[in-house]
Design a protein around this nucleic acid. Sequence first.
RNA 1: GCGGGCGUGGCGGAAUUGGCAGACGCGCCAGACUUAGGAUCUGGUGUUUUACACGUGCAGGUUCAAGUCCUGUCGCCCGCACCA
Length: 800
Amino acid sequence: MKHDFRTIEKKWQDRWDAEKAFAAVDGSDKEKFYALVEFPYPSGAGMHVGHIKAYSGLEVVSRKRRMQGYNVLFPIGFDAFGLPTENYAIKTGMHPRTVTDKNIEKFSSQLRRVGFSFDWDRVIDTTEEDYYKWTQWIFLKLFEKGLAFRDKTLVNYCPHCKVVLSNEDSQGGKCDICHSDVVQKSKDVWYLRITEYADKLLEGLEEVDYLPTVKQQQVNWIGKSTGAFVNFEVPGTDEKLRIYTTRPDTLFGVTFMVMAPEHPMLDKYADRIANMQEVLDYRTVCAKKTEFERTQLVKEKTGVKLDGLTAKNPLTGKEIPIFISDYVMMGYGTGAIMAVPAHDQRDWEFAKKFGVDIIEVIKGGNIEEEAYAGDGEMVNSGFLNGYTNKKDSIARAIEELTKLGCGEMGVQYKMKDWAFNRQRYWGEPIPIVHCPHCGMVGVPYEELPLRLPKVENFEPGSDGESPLAKIESFVNCKCPVCGKDAKRETDTMPQWAGSSWYFLRYIDPHNTECLADPDKLKYWMAVDWYNGGMEHVTRHMIYSRFWYRFLYDLGVVPVAEPYKKRTAQGLILGPDGEKMSKSKGNVVDPNVVVDEFGADVLRVYILFMGDYEKAAPWNESSMRGCKRFLDRIAGLTDMASGKGETPAITKSIHKTLKKVTEDIENMKFNTAIAAMMTLINDIYDCGKLTNDELGVVARMLCPFAPHISEEIWEMLGHKDLCSLAQWPEYDETKTVDNTVEVAVQINGKLRATVELPLNCDKDVAIATAKADERVAPLIEGKTIVKEISVPNRIVNIVVR
RNA sequence: GCGGGCGUGGCGGAAUUGGCAGACGCGCCAGACUUAGGAUCUGGUGUUUUACACGUGCAGGUUCAAGUCCUGUCGCCCGCACCA
């Protein structure tokens, strides 16, 4: 048969659709397998091959598991709220709803053309009312529990997009959406108290099977550190200067204090600070610096010494100066530090520049040259003198501070609370009413969804106000508690809201009573295997684990962690080896590939091009090799006949089957395909195979290239779908050879190979090796020092 | 600076975890069939001085045996970054 992909791919896609071949079954007593891929953001550009790679991995695993008898849930949906759509809508004058619908249609048709085995009855769209009703429901629950709150603080603000950004969305001081510089702005914003869950998120990592680097990134992001809070008296005031330190045992080495330029104590005691103008000037300079400038490592320490405020070391009673400097951040710890210049490089540099004393309290370094951060014996430290173990000295210091009432043990996290509102139109409205009498009141549950009003103009206001603020019919409402006039919250939720729980909705996508039926949740959760990009490891994954854990604490979901296993695919690079991007013009459109080579070739090539978890450049001529491979598979149909097994082929099939079965589970798709290529080469060399053997080939190929497999399966006379046929089992005994080729080394150098029976006796192996015509002359007349035999592998004879 | 990963032919990449380096594919060379080939088929293809040779970034070490383990070093990629 000819590999006529243009005809057969459409034919089988239609049949899968018509038979709902890949529908997950509720209430089944089969073992379940929930495979999750990150749902796409449906942009106007359509999909690119990177999307296809991201889904192909679990597509293969899902198809195989289905054939192995699992009840598989492999869903897809669209994460469709967000700025790119809104910006596109503003530019073109189309409504975001229309844009979104168009894009989803485009994405869906592309996905179908590739032949993915998604359950199309469970597709979700985060912008649909039935969906975001439950996003709002979860928000209200968070609000009820005090985990959603408003606060006026310094926030990351993107002047270009006119939105407040979370820390996660402004990494490196650049807006994640438009890449312009983010500025710090004081604003009244919504927060989700994710820090309350920091420990649970950290502990949860112990029970899950994530890639080590994924875990590591999450641990770093949460950034837990333990240490102590210490309160320094500020003579002449009632207030204490509170600092956080991980090394309270170095307190005897403190020679000055540093506050962040924005520290509130400065304003409070402005009248006591003689050089307040200098302080204010410095603050202005710092505020103007971009994040980039502030993080330049090489730059010199700057700062201002406060004239009029000092601090008193609680252990020594010594009075020490207070400085302000921008190397101390308001956003971490208490916004102030105790400086130990002998043992902290930043403090050391600062002390050198401003001429402050440097007192050694840990022996072992040369503090004239640089700060010493290593371990050593404590000196100049009163009751801590003589300690050599860091852990002990820290514990003792905390004990002493606690006794004196001027400090206590403390924990800090790098992770900040999640800034949760956006002043934009295309997002979930935050279901809160501001009542002049009752304060902030949640919209009653029975009124959900709080619908996004249809508007003509969804451009944000120049003052950074949400477009919704201009719609009086939306803003003005009655307070649900007292019934008097009130105003609605007009901000919307960030892009990350809808994706924080989508995997739960797949389980019961049409439920109108709750976000998903508890029995169904109990059956399907947790997600068995989640695959996606490395870029979502610290944002989406942490947010969604937080929401999920919150729902668990509410009793809504059955297990504590949502994802049992997490893997990540590597990027597909452009043919030039660079990251694919529109500006470089090296983006490959999957539609073009499907048109020219077919979906099966695209799928096989993407999985064959390299290690699934690593980046690999696109190479079209390499793809031709995959086309050749599938063409040759199609050609097998002309070779197959009713009977006449060849032992060598039988063995080759079982070996390949074993390899493919195992490799799929380990995401070693490239070697699985390589093994099948070898098998096909073997069959071509042999020139024949039986129909049954061809059936096995079709089934093991099916997860990778399902269309051609179905076609072959049908040609063999099967009425059922190959995609749902039984996965062929390999027979271990048929995968091993009776004889093996064993390498013979002399002094570690390969000199010959000998054919030996499998698991043959060590002595026989060595004897056979020595008798070999190429080996014998080389050991003749030499002293044999040692003989090593590794069964079925190697014989090494050491001679002198 | 800290954390993680990587370095193997002309290219993408394999290597049962210490046991025949280079599977599989691309490319290339030669041949066959062809009016033709960006089609198909067959054979070859790590390097070189063709042999007791050399070869997994480089230099050492451990071992009968090292791409794999250890020490040092160079280079690349990714993440975090004045986190107290």
